[in-house]
Simulated scan of single mutants.
Amino acid sequence: MIDKKTLYQHSTLATLVPGLLKGTLKMSELLQHGDTGIGTGEGLDGELIILDGQPYQVRSTGEVKAVSANFTVPFANAHFADFKSLFAVNHLAGKQLETQILAATHYQNIFFAVKVSGRFKKIQTRAVAKSESPYPTLLATAKAQKIFNAEDIEGTLISYYAPQLFNGVAVGGYHSHFLAAGYGFGGHVLDYTINDAEVQVQAFTTLEQHFPLDDPEFMAHDFAADNIANDIEQAEK
């Protein structure tokens, strides 16, 4: 039986902070744990979004391409979709929507996923160019990000919400990626305003945290020396 109550996460967001960006899980393995998800590639190679079991990569050039089974990730989330309709929204900013979702669900202390499908008045995304080993820190890599803007565009936004007590394991709050209906636009979401869309949510009872035990750099690194919370906050802006 497919488990639809578990959110699977490979590695932690804190792992990226000091520049541990090596791909430590193949896409084929990630897809065993879900048909929906987000993440990034080795060296922070673009932004990933998985919809209906198909992974897509939004590259720093703006190109969107399908991802192969051998594509590796240093960090990713995945789950099997079982979204429930929450409400429809019209002419609403992203921050307002995020507040309304928490007010309607009272999910502030659990992990949950959000799916927003419809037409967006405007949306701003970003994608990071791939780094090569020896990898720079997350903050240094994020400075090379490319910003993209679109207006009056149809597509799907997938977001994972993590409680603040898990900040570092994941992004405390919402972490969102977008893919346009025509697969010509997407990325990590920075800001958006909705014209007309359906909002669905899926709550998780369990977080399955998977660690890259075969990566000697991860196993040996002392994370106590890293400014994890500050660097994540700065990189996610």
Rank of each mutant, 00 (worst) to 15 (best):
P163N: 03
D3L: 11
H10E: 10
N70M: 10
T36V: 06
L44Q: 13
L13A: 09
R59G: 03
A93M: 05
L20M: 10
L157C: 14
L13N: 05
A129W: 01
P74L: 02
Q200C: 01
H210Y: 06
K65D: 02
T206D: 12
T206P: 02
K237V: 09
L92V: 06
L207R: 06
I158P: 00
I153F: 06
L102Y: 08
F112R: 05
F71Q: 05
Q200D: 04
V64N: 05
L16F: 05
H79C: 15
A76N: 12
Y183V: 04
L48C: 15
S133W: 08
E63H: 13
L179C: 05
S117M: 05
H177P: 03
A129E: 10
Q9W: 10
K121S: 07
Q124E: 01
K130H: 04
M27E: 03
Q124L: 10
K5Y: 12
S68I: 07
A162C: 03
H91K: 12
F87H: 05
F148T: 08
A127I: 09
G173K: 10
Q124N: 09
A103Y: 01
Q200N: 14
E42G: 09
V171L: 12
F178H: 11
K22Q: 11
Y174W: 11
R119F: 01
L30D: 03
Y161W: 10
E63I: 02
E208F: 03
L21S: 00
F223W: 09
H79A: 14
N77G: 07
A81H: 06
G173M: 09
F204G: 03
G155W: 08
A170P: 02
G62C: 10
L138A: 12
H188Y: 12
K4V: 14
P136K: 15
R119Q: 13
V73G: 00
Y8W: 11
A203D: 12
E63Y: 09
I110G: 01
N230G: 15
V199E: 06
D52Y: 08
F71M: 06
V17D: 02
S28F: 00
T125D: 00
F185S: 13
I147M: 09
K122M: 04
K237P: 00
L86W: 12
Y161M: 02
H221W: 06
H210L: 13
T105Q: 14
A142C: 11
I147T: 14
D82H: 10
P163G: 04
N77Q: 15
S68R: 06
